[in-house]
Every structure is written in C-alpha cells, then in structure tokens.
Design a protein around this nucleic acid. Structure first.
Length: 813
DNA sequence: CGTACTAGTCTTTTT
DNA sequence: GACTAGTACG
C-alpha cells in the first residue's frame, strides 16, 4: 500500500519528476509501483523503460521487485548500474569512436601502472607530485567532461596544471593504444559517442522513453550529462534521491544535480517523501537534529507513526579496544536475550581499518560475521595474475595485463629484456604484445628471444583453446599450463594456502557466472571480465546467512538493520581530520550527511560509541567525542552504565561519560573558527592542541585532534599521553592517563601472533632513566601490557607518567 | 635474474 | 600498524 505522497509519485508518469525521498521512506516501493503502473495502466512497453542505480546489488533488488510485481515482460526492462549500462552501449558502438569493441576495463591498479610508466617516461618527479595526484586530477577532469586540450588551455601557462594536462594527454594515448577504458571513461566515452553520433543517441532516446535514476544525489557531471542526453527527447525522467544522503563528493558527485534539478527541468514536479517506515521516532529525531546543522539542503523532516522506541545508547570507552569489547558484548547480550539475531545487528564505522579490532573481538567470542569491503577480492595478487592471463587472451592490446604476466610465474624474462621490448614497441608505435611477436627482430635481446616466443606461443594456444573450452576449463588450463600453483607452493610462502583458497574462489565465481547466463552464447570471456571489473564490495552481501555485518558507513547506504552500532564517533575520525581542517566547509557537511546516513540505518535500536584513545596508523590518538554526538539532543540519549556488561569493568568509574553532555554545547562555527565547546570535554584532545603547533595559516589548528606521536622514527617528538597532561590545562588528562590506558594492540590470541613482540626493558623499578622530553626520572612500576610494557616513571618537574616502553625509548642512566 | 630486506607511504569514503 | 615499492645482495 502506498501513502498519498507515494501514490502521487507513482502516478506521475509524464515529464520530469524529482522525488525527494528521505531515508526509509519507501522509495524503492515507489519506483517499482511506478514501473508497474507504466506497464499495466499506461500501456508502456517494458522495453522502453530504463532504471539506473549505482550498485549491482541495488539493481538486482530492484529487478527482483519489479519482476515480482510486473510479471510478464519485466525482463525487457533495462535495470542496471550506470557503468554496466555504458559498457553495454559501448560494446556495441565504441568502434565508431576509434576503439575495438572488445576493450578492456582498467581498474585503479591498472591505471596506476600506466601512470607510473608515463611519469617515468616524462621524467616527472613523483616526489613533487605523486602519481595519485595526477590520477585524481585526471579523474576529476573526466568527471567534468574536460579534455586534455581544454585542461591545457585552462592551465593558462601554470606549470603544474600544464603538467597535469600533458600527463592526461599521454595517459589517454596510452589507454587508447591498449584498447582500454578506465571507470570514468565508461561514462565519458558514452557521452562522446552520443555527441559524435546523434543517430545512435536518438536510437537510445527512442528506446528509453521512460528513465528512472536512483540515488540521484550521488551523480556526477558526466552521469548527469549522460542522463540529460538520453532524456532530452521525451523528458520523461524521474529521479529519486535525498540531498541529505549525498556522500560521494570525493568521487565527483555533485550535489547541485539534485538541488538544481528544478532549474534544469523547469517543468519538473517535486514530491517529498517524509514519512519513514523504518525507524523509531527517537532515531529519526536524532537524525533530524544532526542534519539540521547543515546549510544548503532542501528542508525536510522525517517522521514516523512507529512510536518513540528506546533511547539511543551512548557509550564513551577508554580505548578502541574496549569499544570493540563493548559492542561485541552487546551483540552477544542481544542474541542471548532473544532480542536480535546476529544478522539483525550491524557495526558501522568511518574507515575500513576500524573493522580489525571489532573483528578480533568477534573471533574471540566465536560470533559469525562478515566484513564488507576492505581489500577487494579482485585486487589480490594471485587473482590479478590469473585475470591478467584472461585479459591477455581476450585483448592482447592490454599492455598492463601482458606485462603483468610476462614473467609470472618466473620464466626468466627480466627487466632488461622487458625494457628492450618496450623500447622497440615505442619506436615502432606498436603495442607491447605486437613487439613480443616480433621478438626475433629485436636485435638487442639476443638469447631472451626464445623465451619471448614461447610466451607468445602459449597465449596463442590459449586463444585457440578458448574456442572449445568452457571458461572454467580455460582458467584451469591456464593454471595447469603455467604451473601457477606448483610454483607458488615451491616458493613456500606462509600465505600459500590462503592464496590457493582465493584461486578456488575465483573458479567458483567463473562457474557462477557461467550458470547465471541464460544461454550459452551469452557466456564470454569479456563478459566475465567485465562483470568482475564492475563489482562493488556491497554487491556480494547476502542477507540469508545469520552473521553480524561490519562495514563502512558508505557501504551501508541503502541498508537497514534492527540494531545498528555506530562506532568511532570521535573528532578527527568522524568527522575525519581531513574534513575538519578543510578550507571548504561543505566537506564537514558531507561528514554530517554520512552520520545522518548511519543513524537512519537503524530500525529499532541505535548504539553510538566512541573511544578516548585509539591507534591510527601506528599512532596513538586521543580524540574528543564527535560533535555529531553533541548535536543529538541529550534527552534522546541514554548513557550506558560503566562496566555493565560484566567481566571487564573499568578500573575507574566512568562518571564523565555524562559530563560530555552537561558541558556547554559546541559553540564554534563549522566554517573554521574555533570550537570552544570542545575544549571542555574530558579528553586530552579536547584540552586543545598545542598553541605553538598552530600555524597561522591554519585557522583550524585548535580543531586538530591531538596526535600523540608514537612514530618511532621521529623520536624527538615524544610520544605519550603523558606529554599531553602538561600542556593542557583541564582536569581530564590525568585521569585518562591514569592506568587504564589500553593500547589498541591486538589481543595475541586472535591473530596468533607472538605476545612478546617487544623486548623486556633493560631497566627495572628504582632505576633512573632518561626520556627525550621529560628528562630524568625514577621508574616506579613496570607492568606487562599486550605486546609491550607499561612503565610508570616519576620525572623531576613533570610528575608521574605512564608510558609504553616500546614507544617511550627510555634510556637507563 | 631472482630474492630478501628496508624505507617510505598511507585511504576516509568507491563505481 | 600494514603494505608496497625500491634497492641491495646473492
């Protein structure tokens, strides 16, 4: 059943329509109903409908629901992601703009390889400007439909920008030679194709008379343009989105696409869906309160008739380790009490790295879980190797693939030989593989020729076998012929087993792909490679196993769970340090939207946690609770009592969790002033960063989370929380530091690593030691901590400090 | 030519 | 802390 607003949206079929769909407002229901209505009531041919999403998962779900509802003819509706839609179009027509139709798709790694080669060739110093800077500049140019020559013009002689433009041009040339497209190209080349060949565009305009775009707030300029072109004839475009959930700016998403929709499509109808069917009122109130701190948004406010529900649980833990314990204990408790099953609980975090501690805790407790994302399956070495074979078989112009495997497994073709071949290829303006075929003509190689010929021959054989082998057989044949696994075993690395499992998994995926296709002609090597290139982490998540899900907030968009744990809500982590120090205040607003997304994933219960201390990239950070927590009205929050989950109670009463909220609220401006409210919070970070460290250029210096430098190399800057106590003037620091500092170290059990990673200190209780910063002091106590020793020292003039021996580098005198 | 080690970097988020 | 790219060695 649809509510009035939803109905209105579903029934508006002609002309542009913007559906502003708040989180959990049933937008998928609206879209599917709309499609059903178009087909069943308006007599629209399913063939004329296009529905675009961002992930395969979303596309799959939409397809499923449309199938359920429409029945006959639903499979001729085109439901796909932006990228796969473009690939399908390009596979058919890209030859019109000078590529082969069997082009390869380059992922980020491949791009990087190409980029490296170019920078080396152009002798650009990557210390000045690293390759990723070029890559992101080029990517953004492509997103904005800017060509290399336009970029050069825009540079107006500026050296750096001109350099980028030059590299961009080279990069384009290189990809074209390799008959490869990167992710951005998929969109860009389609738009180019449409622009260059109006008749092709028109055929698609005729086909897609009714267009729907989901998550419209995440579209970037090329995507906008792609849709605009397709829709410009019939103007039956329906976009669904929520400006408050725009979280992909870093990838070029332009929130103006949704905010200005009515300006571009003047006759557009706008419908707001504000009734939420997912969450309790408390959760919505919290979400509304947080997001209301953003400017530049379409005003809306979610409501529900579901009732208030429980308050939001909040817990400030002493360390990230305890945070993980707390969350996992709660998961166990919920399960034990029969409240929520594992699959009904999800742990969300800002950065992938945060998953590790939670994971370890789950392992120790024997709880089934899945981590979404992290290191992509397809970017593992053995997988990339095998895929490179397949790519080479499929498109030997793919230089990156050919070069990847020419000597993997090792067959005695070294760097010198490869360079010679490349030089030959450059001189004759042919691809690397073509040069290999002419190995006998490359005079400089000498004895290596035979090996190169053998390689080319091997590829040829694979290619001819491909005619009569299934994909699975082909992969197995590649493995057998190259003795890939045997050579890997011979090298006897500790991770051989894992890699073998990964290879098996790849074969499973090949088989699954073959089974997926309706008829055998659809099974192609390019098809498989393409599918592999366009998967997102979230795509493989299935709901049917009873496991706790761990994922980033970004991955969580579009999902819902009865109990959501929002972890790591700390200044410097979430909002991220980058966004806090950015010159552009909208970066912080994006973080806030991300927080909004996180809160609105929860259906019934929401637990929000933060830690006073955590390890980030080998450094111990002391972060204040996130401003986002303070933006939630305190009456919606429930502080959980300390140690309420039994076995690990805190060494000291956690009374100041509450203090966070009796302090004056966050008083600063988002735009970059100080936020003095912060400094009252009970954490060393809140006690303000060292004024001396505040460079005048950085007006946000006070906003920086204090990072205790545990960096082993820069040991003159010291290390510990102890240092913090002295520069701060509040009362919190000492307490925080008072004995219950637990580092983010992994528990040895979980990873099977040796506990005694650090040597025992060469000093003992009573000895006098020297610290780089505090000078001389007397050792009072030495305690064993996970993987280190915690040493208590009484320094002259600085008082008693606790520190980790491994970091503090105390010298006995 | 292949390897073992070291130094440096890092992503915050991903189709 | 973890990973990777680069270099020194055999």
């Amino acid at each position: 059943m649809l509510n009035d607003r939803q109905k209105e949206a579903a029934l508006h079929t002609e002309g542009p329509l913007l559906i502003l769909a708040g989180a959990g407002s049933g937008k998928t229901r609206v879209i599917t109903n709309r499609i059903a209505y178009l087909i069943d009531e308006c007599g629209v041919n399913p063939w004329n409908i296009l529905a675009i999403t961002f992930t395969n998962k979303a596309a799959g779900e939409m397809r499923q629901r449309v199938d359920d509802m429409v029945g006959y003819g639903s499979d001729s509706i085109w439901v796909a992601t932006f990228h796969s839609t473009c690939v399908r179009i390009l596979r058919r027509y890209i030859d019109k703009i000078g590529y082969d139709n069997n082009f390869t798709i380059y992922d980020t790694d491949d791009q990087k390889t190409v980029m490296k080669g170019i920078l080396k060739r152009l002798q650009i110093d990557t210390k000045q400007m690293p390759e990723r800077a070029f890559m992101s500049a080029i990517s953004h140019a492509k997103e904005e439909l800017i060509t290399p020559s336009e970029l050069m013009k825009d540079a107006m002689g500026d050296y750096g920008s001109a350099q980028v433009a030059k590299v961009y041009a080279e990069y384009e040339k290189e990809l074209k030679k390799s008959n490869a497209l990167d992710f951005d190209d998929l969109l860009l080349k389609t738009v180019e194709l449409f622009t260059a060949w109006p008749d092709i565009l028109e055929s698609y305009q005729e086909r897609f008379r009714y267009i729907m775009v989901d998550e419209y707030q995440d579209t970037n300029t090329v995507q906008f343009e792609f849709i605009r072109l397709l829709a410009s004839k019939y103007r039956n475009i329906c976009v669904v989105g929520d400006d408050d959930q725009s979280i992909y700016k870093f990838r070029g998403a332009n929130i103006r696409n949704i905010l200005d929709f009515e300006k571009v499509y003047k006759e557009a109808r706008v419908i707001k869906l504000e009734q939420n069917y997912r969450s309790t009122q408390s959760i919505l109130d919290a979400a509304n309160a947080v997001i209301s701190n953003n400017r530049g948004r379409k005003d809306k406010s979610l409501w529900t008739d579901k009732g208030d529900g429980e308050r939001i649980h909040f817990r400030q833990c002493n360390s990230a380790y305890e945070e993980a314990e707390y969350v996992v204990d709660s998961i166990i408790k919920e399960k034990r009490e029969g409240k929520y099953d594992y699959s009904e609980q999800a742990v969300l975090y800002r950065t992938n790295a945060q998953a590790r501690l939670i994971e370890e805790q789950l392992i120790m407790s024997g709880i089934p879980y899945d981590v979404v994302g992290g290191v992509n399956f397809y970017s593992r070495r053995e997988i990339k190797d095998i895929l490179a074979y397949l790519k080479t078989i499929d498109n030997a112009r793919d230089d990156v693939a050919v070069k990847r495997i020419i000597n993997v497994p090792a067959r005695g073709i070294g760097a010198t030989t490869i360079n010679r071949v490349q030089e030959y290829a450059n001189e004759n303006d042919i691809t690397f593989y073509e040069a290999l075929k002419e190995a006998d003509k490359i005079t400089s190689i000498g004895r290596g020729t035979g090996k190169l010929e053998a390689f080319v021959n091997m590829i040829r054989v694979f290619r001819s076998k491909q005619e009569f082998l299934s994909l699975e057989e082909l992969v197995r044949d590649v493995l057998d012929t190259t003795e890939y696994i045997e050579k890997m075993e011979a090298a006897d690395k500790e991770d051989t087993e894992q890699r073998k499992e990964n290879i098996d998994e790849l074969i499973n995926k090949v088989v699954a792909y073959e089974e997926e296709q309706d008829n055998d002609e659809d099974i192609t090597l390019s098809g498989f490679l393409e599918e592999v290139a366009l998967v997102a982490d979230i795509d493989s998540v299935s709901a049917d196993s009873n496991r706790v899900l761990l994922m980033t907030l970004h991955s969580a968009k579009g999902l819902e769970f009865p109990h959501v744990y929002l972890t790591g809500l700390e200044e410097g982590l979430f909002p991220s340090y980058m966004s806090m120090t950015s010159d552009d205040p909208s970066d912080l607003e994006e973080e806030r939207r991300l927080c909004y997304v996180g809160i609105t994933r929860a259906m019934d219960e929401l637990t929000v946690t933060c830690a006073r201390q955590r390890m980030v990239r080998g450094e111990t950070q002391y972060n204040a609770p996130s401003r986002f927590i303070r933006e939630i009205p305190s009456e919606l929050l429930e502080m959980s009592g300390s140690g309420s989950f039994g076995r690990k109670s805190l060494p000291e009463d956690d009374g100041y969790t509450k203090e966070v909220f009796v302090r004056k609220p966050y008083a600063g401006s988002v735009a970059g002033g100080s936020y003095s409210g912060m400094s009252n919070i009970n954490s060393p970070a809140g006690m303000s960063a060292r004024p001396s460290a505040a460079s005048p250029a950085n007006r946000n210096a006070y906003a920086k989370p204090y990072i205790a430098s545990a960096n082993k190399t820069a040991n003159e800057v010291s290390v510990l929380a102890g240092e913090r106590q002295n520069t701060g003037k509040g009362t919190g620091g000492i307490r925080l530091n008072n004995g219950f500092v637990r580092s983010g170290n992994k528990p040895a059990v979980a990873l099977g690593k040796d506990i005694g990673a650090h040597d025992e200190p060469d000093y003992g209780v009573g000895d006098t030691v020297r610290h780089v910063k505090f000078g001389e002091g007397v050792v009072k106590k030495i305690e064993k901590a996970p993987r280190d020793y915690e040493v208590t020292v009484d320094f002259k003039g600085f008082g008693i400090k606790k520190m980790f021996a491994g970091f503090a580098k105390l010298k006995k005198i």
